[in-house]
Design a protein around this nucleic acid. Structure first.
Lengths: 219, 219
DNA sequence: TATGTATTCAATACAGTACTTGAATAGAGG
DNA sequence: CCTCTATTCAAGTACTGTATTGAATACATA
C-alpha cells in the first residue's frame, strides 16, 4: 500500500473521530445539554434519564475525542464543551437534519402541538417591547445555565422555583418565558403554571444562542 | 416513560443519522470525493482502493440517511451529494478536526513534506498575476470534476494526460497547477512532471471551494 | 433476443459499541 | 482519620457495523 494511501487513511481516521462522537443519540443529547452550560455527571444523568455509569462512559469517549473537558469542583466533576465551535457545529447539524429529514419536522410539530394553548412571541416583537419596558423576560432554565449565558435583561427563575415566586412578579408588565429552544418544554410549562394563577404569559420559541444569532443578523 | 422523553429520543435518533454517516473514515472519504463532483461506484472504488461491493454498501447507508442521491447514466449509477450544505458541513468538520487534533496538523505537515521541492503560490498572488495574464492555471483533476466546477480561467488537463500535452503549453506564461486541496497530491505530481521537462511550475495548495470561499472573503 | 458490464444483494465472519451491574477509587468535609 | 458521595472502572452480554465473498440482477448495447 502506498504512502499516500496510508496517510489518507490516517487522516480520515482522525476526521471520523468527530463523526463517531456524533453517531450516538445519547451523546448528541449530552452535547446539546452541555451547549447550555457546564454540568456534572449526575445532572446529565438526570436530564437524559441514563444511568450515571453510562453517562460517565459516554463522557469518556467524548473526552477522548476532545469534544469536552472537565475539572473538579468539590465533590463533582464538571464537564463542558471543549470549544465554542462545537456548539456551532451542533447547531449546523440540527439545521441540516431539519432540512433533510421530514421526520424531524414532524417531531418539531409535535413539540409545538404539545402546548397548543401557549402563545408565542417572535424575537422581533420581543426586542421592540423589551426596549419599551413592557415585558419581563424570564429565563426558566436551571440557574447554572442562566449564569453561564442568558439573554440580556432576563431574570432567572427556574421552573421548579416558579411557584414560590408568584408574588414577586410585577403586574404592570407582560411576562415572557424562554428556555433551551424549540425542543424544550420548560418555558411552556412555566407559561401554563402562570396561566393557572391568572397571570397572562407568552413563551419565546427560541433559545439563548438563537437570540444572539438574531442580533447578529439584524446588525 | 414520558411522552416528552419519547419525542426527545426520536429526535436525537434522527440527528444521529447524520452522525452515523460521518462515523466511518471510508464514508467520509467517499463524501469528500463526491464534494468534487458526481461519480460512479467504480470511480469511487478506484479512488478509495475499496472493493466495489463495499463502496456500494457504504453508498446505500449514505443514501438511506439522505446524504447522497443517485441516477443512472448508461450502464453507470452516478452518485452525488444530496445538497450543497453537506459539502459545507464536511468543510466545517475538517476545520474542527484541524483545530482540535494535533494529529491532523501532523498529517497535513507530512503532505507538505511529501513534495518539499514543489513551490507554492498563495491565493492572493494567484489573483493578481492571473489578472495580468502572467499565469496559466491548470486544473489537473479528472475532467468530470473540472466540468462539475473549477476556478474561472483554469484549463483542464488531468495529470494522466499531462505528458501528451507538453507541446501545447505556452512558454510565455508561468504554470500553476491545482487539484482537490491540501490533502491531494495530484497537483504536486503535475509540477514534478513539468519540472522534469524543464518547464517551471508552481502548485496552488487550495482547492476549488477554498478559492470561492476566498473570493467571498475579500468581497 | 443475447451478451456483457456495472451494480446490488445475501450470507458470513469479525470487530467494535452500548448498556447493565456491582465493585473500586478519590477526595471533600466533618 | 474516617465517612460519605460522586465518579470511574471492569466484566459480561447483547447488539450494531464493516468488510469479504460469490451469486444475482438490471439494463444498455449489439
Amino acid at each position: 500500500m502506498s504512502d499516500e494511501r496510508k496517510l489518507t487513511d490516517l487522516l480520515y481516521e482522525e476526521f471520523a473521530r468527530i463523526g463517531k462522537s456524533l453517531s450516538s443519540p445519547k451523546r448528541l443529547e449530552i452535547l446539546d445539554l452541555l451547549s447550555q452550560g457546564p454540568k456534572s455527571v449526575e445532572e446529565l444523568s438526570k436530564a437524559t434519564t441514563m444511568s450515571v455509569a453510562n453517562v460517565s462512559q459516554h463522557l469518556r469517549t467524548l473526552y477522548n475525542s476532545k469534544m469536552v473537558t472537565s475539572h473538579k469542583e468539590g465533590n463533582f466533576v464538571i464537564y463542558e464543551l471543549m470549544d465554542e465551535g462545537i456548539a456551532d457545529f451542533l447547531e449546523t447539524l440540527h439545521m441540516l437534519s431539519e432540512k433533510q429529514y421530514m421526520e424531524v419536522q414532524q417531531i418539531k410539530q409535535e413539540f409545538l402541538n404539545a402546548d397548543h394553548d401557549v402563545d408565542r412571541i417572535s424575537l422581533e416583537e420581543l426586542n421592540e417591547r423589551m426596549d419599551n419596558g413592557e415585558i419581563l423576560l424570564l429565563d426558566v432554565r436551571p440557574r447554572s445555565e442562566y449564569e453561564s449565558s442568558h439573554i440580556p435583561g432576563a431574570i432567572s427563575i427556574p421552573v421548579e422555583e416558579l411557584e414560590e415566586q408568584y408574588s414577586t412578579l410585577p403586574t404592570d408588565q407582560e411576562i415572557v418565558a424562554y428556555c433551551r429552544g424549540t425542543y424544550c418544554l420548560m418555558a411552556s410549562r412555566a407559561v401554563e403554571l402562570l396561566k393557572e394563577q391568572g397571570i397572562y404569559a407568552y413563551r419565546l420559541q427560541e433559545g439563548v444562542q438563537d437570540w444572539y444569532d438574531y442580533q447578529e443578523d439584524i446588525g
